[in-house]
Design a protein around this nucleic acid. Structure first.
Length: 270
DNA sequence: AACCACGGCAACCGCCAATAT
DNA sequence: CATATTGGCGGTTGCCGTGGT
């Protein structure tokens, strides 16, 4: 494969920069497969790569590592990102620890390109107002979409999504009931269980069962060692919908923009 | 068909903390 | 203990594909 001309960097005579070639990827992958990762500067030299150790590390962690998950973020993952960002801010690596297979870079890009863009359109000075708006208005629609995807896949109607968002509707709310698919649901609604307290999320959260490879989890979702389960009272779909529609503290303009977010996020799933 | 604007994302940069010497 | 090196993180840049005109 023809390599693009290397960009000369001071001190190092021939360090390459820019997009990685297939040949470089192969070299890096084979080397790490045989020798493991770490000692990136040494690794770069030994692998025969004319790259900085940093560059190799980044390429491996963000692209080549076998367990990297590809494709659009699932609704569950999107919810989790919104939630964790509201809790931790721009701690991308920390947030990424809770989304198996997703990299901090990917989450950061998602946030900047999708979420912040909407914040700008809303003319909301970033975090608080916008996040509150997202929390209270996006939630029911997104939950419905989660339910739809699980229905389409013929899986259990019981879908779990961690959602402190619901606290903005009612702090004691942990379960929101949304319309179920009559094909597989014994009743007319199915429940989405959410933790009432998201502040105690364990450092190592395994959401593999909920989001890895696009699966929707049955029953409750395992977050760390404890299952989040129904606690408190339920909100039926009509109530959720009306809350969505009747949040009168928010402007029409903001509501419109938030609906656009729904469109944007849901389109990815269709 | 050509041009332009925009969005998404891979890759880089700069800083800082941890670790090695 | 001081300094150098390495690794990790968040912010930013720039390329490329796509859609609109």
């Amino acid at each position: 494969m023809a390599m693009p001309p290397p960009i000369l960097v001071e001190e190092d005579s021939e360090l390459r920069r820019g997009p990685w070639t297939l040949e470089e990827d192969t070299l890096l992958t084979h080397y790490i497969t045989r020798h493991g990762e770490g000692r990136w500067n040494v690794l770069a030299k030994c692998a025969g790569l004319k790259r900085t150790g940093k560059s190799c590390r980044l390429r491996w962690l963000n692209y080549l590592k076998p367990d990297i998950k590809r494709g659009n973020l699932t609704p569950q993952e999107q919810l989790l990102i919104l939630e964790l960002h509201s809790k931790w801010g721009n701690r991308w690596s920390k947030i990424a620890q809770h989304l198996p297979g997703r990299t901090d870079n990917e989450i950061k890009n998602y946030w900047r390109t999708r979420v912040q863009k909407q914040a700008r359109r809303l003319n909301v000075d970033n975090s608080k107002g916008f996040l509150e708006a997202v929390r209270c208005l996006r939630m029911p629609g997104l939950l419905q979409k989660v339910e739809q995807t699980s229905s389409l896949k013929g899986m259990s109607s019981q879908t779990s999504v961690p959602c402190e968002f619901l606290n903005c509707i009612d702090p004691s709310l942990s379960t929101i009931r949304i319309p179920g698919n009559s094909n597989h649901s014994s009743e007319n609604s199915s429940s989405v269980t959410c933790p009432t307290d998201f502040t105690n999320i364990p450092e190592q959260t395994d959401l593999t069962s909920t989001s890895m490879y696009g699966q929707i989890v049955n029953e409750t979702c395992n977050v760390g060692s404890s299952d989040y389960d129904t606690e408190g009272f339920s909100l039926d779909s009509a109530s959720a919908g009306s809350l969505y529609e009747e949040s009168n503290w928010i402007s029409d303009e903001m509501r419109y923009a938030l609906w656009n977010i729904d469109e944007m996020m849901f389109r990815e799933l269709d």
